[in-house]
């Protein structure tokens, strides 16, 4: 019923606005809207499309050049050599395992967490408590990773409060070296990222839940549906377009780890689990001035992301009938 209403609304909307004739498109409002869009188009063209010419660096021998433009223009073409160098790099396997492993776990744990949190919040009957929880959980999002990471590192330090508590409770006998152990790195990233982004990530779902027609819940309640049924049969299906959209975007970003966060917690002792594509690119590309090599790795990342985005979209369309492209 809801779907029918929605589809009708969309059809009507398009009908009134587009309405058929081309003349109507160029009315005063349309021109104003177009003018408002122009700065955005210029921004995208300059900062998103223009740098794409830099892709040619991936096929040139620009390593060691100091100036990027010179590396692009005054160097020899080398075909796929930079890609081959990356695939043959001894760190390739480890870097890919860490990137994919960490992101897959983040997708499994950190993606559903804000949805669950939003649903739980929306079920809370006390408005004030709900607001308070929202405010508290939003706060960490506004701290930079440097500040937030610094606080976390101080807490988990061998002299830090967490080790002190665990030792005083006799849970551990000697301090845990959380920041310096590879086996702790993934849990550390997942937990800190969850704590930092949970509140903020739930906003969009809270908004989606708020947009659900309350009559649906009332009808369900009258039909004897308990809370669990109302969540699984109304809330989740109604916010599923939003969930699908963000899921597809998350899947396409599976090779992006969020450089800041990794860089803050990364050190030489946890490198076996902390070296991901982003840090690898920075360390061996930017710092060592291997611009061509870096561009090749970046391009590889983009190709994988676009492929995943397309596949994710296709699957979503097949299963739910909704996609983003």
């Amino acid at each position: 019923m809801w779907k029918l209403k929605y589809d009708k609304l969309i059809d009507t909307d398009i009908g009134t606005r587009v309405g058929g004739t081309k003349k109507k498109i160029w009315n005063k409002t349309a021109v104003q809207l177009l003018l408002m869009v122009i700065p955005g188009i210029i921004f995208v063209a300059i900062f998103c499309y223009l740098p794409m010419f830099g892709i040619i660096l991936a096929f040139k021998d620009g390593d060691g050049q100091l100036n990027v433009l010179e590396a692009m223009m005054n160097t020899e073409w080398v075909g796929f050599d930079n890609f081959i160098a990356f695939f043959n790099d001894p760190d390739f396997g480890n870097v890919m395992i860490n990137t994919l492993g960490l992101n897959s776990l983040m997708l499994l744990i950190n993606f559903p967490a804000p949805i669950i949190f939003a649903i739980l919040l929306s079920e809370l009957p006390f408005k004030r408590i709900r607001k308070a929880i929202q405010t508290v959980t939003y706060f960490p999002y506004f701290l930079s990773w440097i500040t937030y990471g610094g606080i976390v590192l101080a807490l988990i330090n061998s002299d830090g409060i967490i080790n002190s508590i665990l030792m005083s409770c006799n849970i551990i006998q000697s301090p845990l070296d959380i920041a310096g152990s590879p086996e702790w790195f993934w849990p550390l990233i997942i937990i800190t990222s969850l704590l930092k982004g949970l509140g903020w990530g739930s906003i969009i779902y809270i908004a989606a839940i708020a947009g659900i027609d309350p009559q649906l819940y009332e009808a369900a309640r009258m039909d004897g549906a308990n809370r669990w049924y109302r969540i699984t049969k109304i809330t989740i299906p109604m916010i599923s377009p939003t969930i699908v959209l963000f899921l597809i975007l998350s899947i396409s970003g599976i090779l992006n780890n969020g450089f800041d966060q990794i860089w803050v917690f990364r050190n030489l002792t946890n490198l076996a689990r902390s070296e991901v594509l982003d840090t690898f690119i920075y360390q061996y590309g930017v710092v060592l001035q291997n611009y061509s090599f870096t561009t090749a790795v970046g391009l590889f990342k983009s190709v994988i992301s676009i492929t995943l985005l397309t596949i994710g979209n296709l699957i979503a369309k097949r299963i739910t009938g909704k996609g983003i492209i």
Partner: peptide, 16 residues
């Protein structure tokens, strides 16, 4: 967009 991008390309060309 295409014209804009193509026009900017030669300006990227640099001499040593």
């Amino acid at each position: 967009l295409t014209c804009g991008l193509l026009l900017t390309l030669p300006s990227c060309a640099s001499q040593e």
